[in-house]
């Protein structure tokens, strides 16, 4: 606690409050609210029932209406707190006609009272609609979408790591004609965004028959110039003497790559792996174009399709948005240090 207080009262010079101190606190304070708030609001909303979601103004926490089983009625009845001339009491609703509800006291179910609905509020307590999370998996295709997303992310990352590291190895550890040209070519395409080559890329992917195939999503993304560039820069720092020593011992070139260079490149590989996972998990525009059949949708495309429907079922949509967010949040929590170091060092994202 004293550390927290020490932090909160820390100031620039130590004497008096400079305006920059105030500004810092305001900026950081609102940042916590603005940066984390929306995601938290999403998570809390995702546990609400459809009725609760359409409430305005919304409540902070998800609530569930309380029901009670009353003798003489088959189904459980919703409970209301009623306040009128007769005082405040808790009644269960039997049926409602217009603005008047027929209600019974759960203790005394034979006597039906007629209550104006203006005089009552539903009784409810904090409760989570887990169905928001279960139904999309059981009744809709979200399980398929999730599997597709995991497949794309996993396979694309593995291929990226393998092909990029092999190319980076060749470009950093061998002298050959045309090496400079290849390196320049790769750097030159570093910044060519997908949106510039959408149309011809589509015709090529279609030409090799990969439309509506997950491989059509994977292949155009794996030969990332960024990855080759990052790994090559790292491999250049590995001393060539190590490789020479291995050659003396009759190691094959493949063994040198696999047993010596790759393990030494592990930190850069880790950064690339993390980025690749986040990139491929989040990819949207290209999968949106390649995948037009439901059974091959990735989560991002499925979410977008679901959000584009005429009657958006927000309770499912919000829950699935949370599911889509989870892997990236896990990466963020456990691997944030690698990512921030990677960005600060190379400016890639």
């Amino acid at each position: 606690m004293s550390r927290v207080m020490g932090f909160l009262t820390r100031r620039k010079g130590g004497t008096g409050w400079d305006w920059t101190d105030v500004f810092t606190f305001v900026w950081l304070g609102s940042a916590v609210f603005i940066m984390f708030g929306p995601a938290l609001w999403l998570v809390m909303s995702s546990f609400k029932s459809p009725a609760q979601l359409s409430e305005f103004p919304p409540t902070l926490l998800p609530y569930e209406a309380q029901v009670v089983t009353v003798e003489g009625y088959d189904r459980p009845l919703p409970l209301f707190s009623v306040t009128d001339e007769a005082g405040t009491r808790t009644l269960a609703e039997v049926r409602r006609v217009g603005t008047v509800a027929q209600m019974v006291d759960p203790e005394n179910p034979t006597e039906v009272q007629r209550i104006n609905i203006a005089n009552r509020t539903p009784v409810r307590e904090v409760g989570f609609s887990w169905g928001n999370y279960l139904d999309p998996f059981l009744r809709f295709d979200f399980l398929t979408y999730t599997k597709n997303s995991i497949f794309v992310t996993g396979v694309a990352t593995l291929i990226t790591l393998l092909t990029n590291s092999m190319a980076a190895f060749a470009l950093s550890k061998y002298e050959f004609r045309g090496r400079g040209f290849v390196v320049v070519l790769i750097i030159a395409t570093l910044m060519i965004p997908l949106s510039v080559i959408l149309v011809p890329l589509y015709s090529i992917v279609s030409g090799v028959g990969l439309i509506n195939s997950l491989w059509g999503v994977i292949l155009p993304t794996v030969a990332t110039p960024t990855g080759v560039f990052l790994l090559r820069q790292y491999m250049l720092t590995i001393p060539d003497e190590l490789l020479e020593a291995a050659r003396m011992d009759h190691a094959s070139e493949w063994q040198i790559y696999w047993r010596i260079v790759l393990p030494l490149t592990a930190p850069a590989l880790a950064v690339l792996a993390i980025f690749s996972v986040v990139w491929r998990w989040n990819d949207f525009l290209w999968p949106l174009i390649v995948l037009s059949r439901q059974e091959v949708y990735t989560l991002q495309v499925g979410l977008n399709a679901y959000a584009g429907e005429l009657n958006v079922q927000w309770h499912y949509l919000l829950a699935m948005t949370v599911i889509t967010m989870i892997p990236v949040v896990l990466v963020f929590i456990f691997l944030q240090r690698f990512i921030t170091a990677g960005i600060a060092g190379t400016g890639l994202k």
Partner: peptide
Amino acid sequence: MVAFFLLPNMAIFTVFVLLPLVIN
């Protein structure tokens, strides 16, 4: 060996990045 190491990446790169650029 250089060709072997470069081939997978450059093949994918050529087909899915360079070629579209030219075709565009």
